[in-house]
């Protein structure tokens, strides 16, 4: 057997975390991206920068602030405690919250690009065909932005799988709860178990490569006539 039982636990946890985070991201990333494309408010710049922040911020910095905010004395911590949920750090759901912030730009930006590529015209056309705002979104925007959604899903998922710093800061290293693959690799290396580290690291490498191949494949296709935008 290549992977140990602990490795499998870490892999399953990672997949579960990435799936949950991706779903949450698609749901909250859609209105954020839509707002960023349509708004004329001065808040567009600041909000856009805030969303993009995890691209440049060291994960430990993000993790640190989240840890403080979600801790027993932080504002989020106070709220979760008053709701009877306890505190989030060092729990699975704490990890979900941290990962959502961390992977947000990887979902919002492809969606933003896809929405921008559609332009105003198809929405105006739909309005002249009696489609109300929600109808327009579901019957015109979503289908026309489908390759953007595919890219956002794959990138959001992959980026969550690959995170390390945020996990360590707010999740720690609890087997089956917060010990994801990247942390498990770190543990193997710490224990000088290079053979196990190789297998997991190799699996991650292959996974990431396939994911990017998929994304570029989709984007390449989007330029072919069949999926051209706005024509």
């Amino acid at each position: 057997m290549i992977f140990s039982a602990a490795d499998f636990t870490a892999i399953l946890l990672t997949l579960r975390l990435a799936t949950t985070v991706t779903l949450v991201l698609i749901v909250i990333g859609t209105p954020i991206a839509w707002w960023l494309v349509r708004t004329r408010s001065w808040l567009k710049g600041p909000v856009g920068a805030l969303v993009a922040l995890p691209l440049v911020l060291p994960p430990t910095v993000l993790g640190f602030y989240l840890l403080v905010a979600m801790g027993p004395n932080g504002p989020v911590g106070q709220l979760t405690q008053s709701l009877g949920l306890g505190t989030l750090p060092f729990t699975y759901w704490g990890l979900v919250v941290g990962s959502v912030f961390y992977s947000l730009p990887f979902v919002v930006q492809p969606l933003q690009n896809a929405f921008e590529a559609i332009g105003d015209r198809p929405l105006e056309v739909a309005a002249t065909l009696r489609a109300g705002p929600l109808d327009r979104f579901f019957t015109v925007v979503l289908p026309m932005a489908r390759s953007g959604y595919l890219t956002a899903t794959v990138l959001g998922f992959a980026h969550t799988v690959g995170e390390f710093g945020v996990v360590l800061m707010i999740g720690g290293n609890i087997p089956g709860v917060t010990r994801v693959v990247s942390v498990q690799i770190f543990d193997h290396v710490e224990a000088l178990d290079y053979a196990q580290a190789h297998w997991l690291a190799g699996a991650m490498l292959l996974f990431s490569f396939i994911v990017l191949l998929l994304v570029y494949g989709v984007q390449g296709q989007a330029r072919t006539p069949g999926m051209r935008f706005g024509s």
Partner: peptide, 20 residues
Amino acid sequence: VPTHRRPLAYVFQEASLFPH
């Protein structure tokens, strides 16, 4: 009255069919 509540139809200058 917003456009989608006006009983009109509009033919745009360039073809404006939904590509999907």
